[in-house]
Simulated scan of single mutants.
Amino acid sequence: MRIIIDGDACPQRVKEICEQAAREFRIELIIVVDIDHYIVSDFEVIVVEQSRDSVDYKIVQIFREEDILVTQDYGLSSLVLSKASAVIHTAGFFINKNNIDNLLQSRYISERVRKQGGKTKGPSKRTREQDENFKKCLYKVLHEKLGKGQRRTIKKP
């Protein structure tokens, strides 16, 4: 099991929560970004060329059974959902087989409105509640899949 982060547009606090969890549970963390995004991490960062969906293609390529995906991208989510332990939106909710169709439909409608010159609600300012909800989702999956006995906190020197 690994945590894979779609690093393009990933909030800093989400990245920090994932890094903390990866350390505590001693699991691999991979952040995938395009060349236009500069990410510094103690964990693996995969940098791909800047082109439409290049990060998504790389994530699909490296994604394995039981990995956890952290993303805001519903299209990418739908591609890995069948083999993921969990897909967690950076806003702090699970993307799953029960809500993916509605999320994709909502995205499609918003794209249509924008193409016709209309406006849709843009992203709102990140809240502390979103950070807390994200952390709850991530730790819930880690506890369910790895069990409390697997969690080993690494003490800092």
Rank of each mutant, 00 (worst) to 15 (best):
I3H: 12
I5A: 04
I5W: 09
I5R: 01
D6Y: 01
G7W: 02
G7I: 05
D8A: 05
Q12P: 00
R13D: 10
R13W: 04
V14A: 05
K15F: 06
K15D: 03
E16F: 00
Q20Y: 04
Q20R: 14
Q20I: 07
Q20W: 03
A21H: 03
A21S: 13
A21F: 04
A22T: 03
R23L: 15
F25P: 01
R26G: 14
I27T: 05
E28P: 00
E28I: 03
L29V: 08
I30H: 05
I31F: 12
V32F: 03
I35T: 08
H37L: 08
H37T: 15
H37A: 06
Y38T: 07
I39M: 13
S41W: 11
S41Q: 09
V47D: 07
V47F: 01
E49W: 00
Q50L: 01
S51R: 14
D53T: 01
S54C: 11
V55Y: 02
D56Q: 12
Y57M: 01
V60R: 10
V60D: 00
F63Q: 10
R64P: 00
E65Q: 12
E65D: 10
E66D: 15
E66Y: 06
E66F: 01
E66P: 00
D67K: 08
I68S: 07
T71W: 07
D73F: 00
Y74H: 09
Y74E: 02
G75T: 04
S78Q: 07
S78C: 07
L79S: 07
L79Y: 01
V80I: 12
L81K: 12
L81E: 10
S82W: 05
K83E: 10
A84Y: 03
S85P: 01
A86E: 11
I88V: 00
H89M: 01
T90I: 08
T90Q: 13
G92D: 04
G92C: 08
F93G: 05
F93I: 02
F94V: 08
I95Y: 07
I95R: 09
N96K: 02
K97D: 11
N98H: 11
I100K: 06
D101A: 11
Q105N: 14
S106L: 12
S106W: 09
R107Y: 02
R107S: 00
Y108T: 10
I109H: 06
S110M: 14
S110D: 15
E111V: 02
R112W: 09
R112M: 14
R112Q: 15
V113S: 07
V113F: 13
K115Q: 15
K115H: 11
Q116T: 02
G117Q: 08
G117H: 10
T120S: 07
K121L: 13
K121T: 13
G122H: 10
G122R: 12
G122C: 04
T127V: 09
R128L: 14
E129V: 08
Q130G: 07
Q130F: 02
Q130K: 07
E132Y: 09
N133Q: 14
K135N: 14
K136A: 13
K136L: 12
K136R: 15
C137N: 09
C137L: 01
V141C: 04
L142N: 03
H143F: 15
L146H: 04
G147D: 09
K148C: 06
G149K: 11
R152M: 13
R152Y: 12
T153Q: 05
I154W: 05
